[in-house]
Amino acid sequence: MAMTRQNAAPISGGDPDPVTEAVDLICGRYGDRPDALIEMFHDLQDGLGHVPETALKPIAKRLNLSRAEVHGVLSFYHDFHTKPVGRVVVKVCRAEACQSMGALPLIAQICDRLGVGLGSTSAGGSVTVEPVYCLGNCALAPAATVGGVLHGRVDAERVAALVTEMTGEAG
């Protein structure tokens, strides 16, 4: 199995591209341990906003895994995006505790106000709205995160205001 990978050619003749550079830095941080693959994806996404497809090959090479294995892990976990997302990501909880406090109509209102469908990014690329299943704030439902910051007892108006604050654009 490892034989085929030894033949992997360098990405290009010149300077390594930024994705490969990030992969080298991050994999090195974890000593190229395959069990740290999920941590590596997190670090990549924290740095680049998403985990680009072009990262799979260099990761596979460094960790001595097949590209398919790396892809398999990446695609299993809901957290990871393989395409760029909005500048602000809104995650609204639609698990039971939040539903008991009106999460489903809330999600519809939020999408309406921000002009974006659930699970997609607005046309200008400013905001992405995603569902999430439990943020651990179930006594202060409904809950949502805006730009990674948790908010409790939210309504659509507040979420839209927070988004506007972060993007500098009207929602």
Partner: peptide, 10 residues
């Protein structure tokens, strides 16, 4: 701790 309605671990 993924169960909706729980936060004790957190």
């Amino acid at each position: 701790e993924g169960d909706s309605g729980t936060f004790a671990d957190r």
